[in-house]
Write a protein that binds this DNA or RNA. Structure first.
Length: 659
RNA sequence: GCUGCUGUAGCUCAGAGGUAGAGCACUCCCUUGGUAAGGGAGAGGUCGAGAGUUCGAUUCUCUCCAGCAGCACCA
């Protein structure tokens, strides 16, 4: 009989009959390992305990203490257990797919009636019964015809479709969790009892398209989270609560930053406090850009469709544009709709992007190679008709302002401009409190314009630029824009969430379409490249990220209300006004709170409002010309001389680029 | 846009086929209080919009609008 030689992690080798399974190997090592085993790594591949090993291989047996495979298996088995529970409760439900995702899994079902929160409870209960039953998990490889016949007979059309989509040379694997069967790649646990019964929770149900295709059936997706023990589950649920606490929509209301209303969906009404943040950030970016060699411009919002036709947006982006039809016959003539000339109608669109307008600025007058690179920046207010379901607070809106710029340059300037931009962006992110960020390099997609040589050159230039500034990046092959490759910049917030903000895109296409040119050293006309770039992305979204990152407790220089001077007794009112005025004279955003309320009340209210510094003044402070300082989040107070404190606060209030 | 859910006072939410309630916030009064809510009184709502059923609709039905979760979208 043929033998296979298995090498264990400690270097030991043992011979087994070919076709031995990791489960048999584990049981051979020890009875307890045989029981504890959950799966194996065979030549680095995650391997089911039941799969035969036919060749010499390196093998390691996984148990629950091998975190990554354990989590993978627990979540994956839970997906099957949940699907089984659902079909036991409602036999007419059709099953589809149920993959493992970050923190847990989901499974998509086809069912007429919606699942209710009570249903989730019933499913969870049934799942615990299945786990308690310790049903064996078994597997078999089936022929395609058998699988199709089986699923056809059982009225599981989605499964039939899945089987048909699997390439003919790939074996079809079936898994049983007790009596319940599902098509699955595996691997799985030994039996359902290996799933920790107290470390999972069904979270929510939501719609999802079959195979992610919006033209196909809408299924119901049940999400679950699962961990290896109860403590981890609780920690995760606690983290979700933390994220909810940081929700910028909630903090925006509490801190009186902005509001939105149904007459202007997806657009922000900024209140004084929120606008203070906005302008502080914008003033900062304006200084940075000026120092970074950009020329700030401003371009129209309402632009004739002719320009959008020329730029290609009318063809490709029209459904995302706010289109404005203007009846020009009323121009200076009449307000009476009946006598207007309907033929004098002009079609405009609100700009969804600034680039075509920036080319118009570039195109004014003759440009020389000496003018390049020309960096035109605009805090460009754009309007995009985003799908209603995409809107989300101030993070995904229909009206927003980008920190946009376009760099017009020659081909051989792309690399240095890219390196220069990465440095610029890193500097801004660092100063704004995001020292770590990730670069993703998206290369040529299937559908593209331009020659392969040109793509080779430009992709090479970007790659060299990243290397020149000494940064790592991950590759996203095929994810570039149709006109050119791009770099996307992702920052990580205080609770580990990742946000794409910055971007750098090489575009030879739009200068061509809009006929931009410059005179080269040789006296001939040349086509410039256009580099689209943004650091923050949009002010609206970035401020949302800042609010959530800092939980509303923004750095002092951005805080909308930096100091509240609160009186303890009304005899201190005049002194409080004097203190506030002294701080205001130093450029600090200070207010007084002289209301007839106790200091406890005032402290609570301004703490909830995230005011970083509360200065309390009573009889003692008036007497000594001091203030008692209470910093947000600190219990302890500090008595300080007014002048001293004013110096400190003035320093703290200085934006990072001026410090 | 799609599926599901939601829409009642500024905010958070309760309620019911017979035109509405709480807490906080707000106004006034008492209180001058030393670091996360002092006490009392008062005012405040076309119950998201429109249509239908009904003697009567904020409540039931339909349509629309907006929000929430997810999906799709984010050249």
């Amino acid at each position: 009989m043929a033998q296979v030689s298995l090498t264990f992690p400690d270097g030991n080798q043992r011979a087994y009959p070919a076709g031995v399974t990791p489960g048999e190997v584990a049981a051979d090592i020890s009875k307890s390992l045989g029981k504890k085993a959950i799966s194996a790594q065979v030549d680095g591949q995650h391997w089911d305990l039941q799969w035969p090993i036919e060749h010499d291989a390196a093998i390691a047996i996984n148990t629950m203490s091998d975190r990554a495979p354990a989590l993978e298996l627990v979540r994956h088995d839970l997906a099957h257990i949940m699907a089984r529970a659902v079909q036991e409760l409602w036999p007419d439900v059709r099953v589809t797919i149920g993959p493992v995702i970050e923190h847990g899994w989901y499974y998509d079902f086809d069912r007429q009636e919606p699942f209710t929160p009570e249903d989730l409870g019933a499913i969870e209960k049934k799942m615990r019964e299945i786990i308690a039953a310790r049903d064996p998990v078994t597997t078999e490889v089936w022929e395609r015809d058998r699988a199709i016949a089986h699923y056809t007979a059982n009225n599981e059309p989605y499964k039939v479709e899945l089987v048909e989509a699997i390439p003919g040379d790939e074996p079809l694997r079936m898994y049983w969790h007790g009596h319940w069967q599902d098509l699955c790649r595996g691997p799985h646990l030994q039996h359902t009892g290996q799933v920790p019964a107290d470390a999972f929770k069904l979270m929510s149900v939501a719609g999802a398209y079959w195979r992610g295709d919006s033209s196909r059936a809408m299924l119901q997706r049940i999400y679950g989270v699962a961990f290896l023990n109860r403590a981890e589950l609780k920690a995760h649920l606690h983290m979700l609560e933390e994220a909810a606490k940081r929700d910028h929509r909630k903090l925006g209301r509490e801190m009186e930053l902005f509001h939105m209303q149904e007459e202007a969906p997806g657009q922000v009404f900024w209140h004084p406090n929120g606008w203070t943040i906005y302008t502080a950030l914008q003033d900062y970016m304006r200084r940075k850009q000026r120092a970074g060699g950009y020329n700030e411009i401003n371009t129209p919002q309402v632009v004739d469709r002719k320009l959008w036709e020329a730029s290609g947006h009318w063809d490709k982006y029209q459904h995302h544009m706010f289109i404005v039809e203007v009846d020009e016959s009323r121009d200076g003539e009449t307000d009476d709709a009946a006598v207007r000339d309907k033929t004098r109608t002009r079609i405009n669109a609100l700009k969804p992007m600034n680039c075509p307008c920036h080319v118009q600025v570039f195109n004014q007058g003759l440009k020389s190679y000496r003018d390049l690179p020309l960096r035109l920046a605009e805090f460009g207010s754009c309007a995009r008709f985003e799908p209603s379901g995409a809107l989300h607070g101030i993070m995904r809106v229909r009206g927003f302002t980008q920190d946009d710029a376009h760099i017009f340059c020659s081909e051989d300037q792309i690399q240095s401009e890219c390196a220069r931009f990465i440095d610029f962006l890193a500097d801004v992110y660092r100063e704004l409190g995001f020292p770590d960020f990730e670069i993703r390099f998206a290369t040529r997609p299937e559908q593209r314009v331009g020659s392969d040589e040109s793509w080779d050159y430009v992709e090479g230039a970007l790659e060299n630029a990243i290397k020149a500034v000494g940064r790592d990046y991950t590759l996203e092959p095929g994810d570039g824009a149709f006109y050119g490759p791009k770099l996307d910049f992702y920052l990580t917030d205080a609770i580990g969430r990742v946000w794409q903000c910055g971007t750098f895109q090489v575009d030879p296409n739009l200068p061509e379409r809009l006929d931009a040119s410059y005179i080269g050293q040789d006296g001939d006309k040349h086509r410039p490249y256009m580099l689209h770039r943004a650091v923050l992305g949009s002010f609206e979204r970035f401020i949302g990220i800042l609010i959530e990152n800092w939980e509303g407790k923004l750095p002092f220089w951005m805080a909308p209300r930096q100091v509240v001077v609160a009186s303890i007794v009304s005899d201190a009112d005049d002194y409080c006004r004097e203190v506030a005025a002294a701080l205001q004279a130093r450029g600090i955003r200070a207010e007084t709170d002289l209301r007839n309320e106790k200091i406890n009340y005032k402290v609570r209210e301004h703490s909830v409002g995230k005011v970083p510094v509360i200065l309390a003044c009573g009889a003692r402070e008036v007497e000594d010309r001091t203030v008692t300082v209470r910093r947000l989040g600190e219990k302890q107070t500090q008595n300080r001389a007014l002048d001293d404190l004013a110096n400190d606060l003035a320093r703290e209030a200085t934006p990072p680029d001026l410090a």
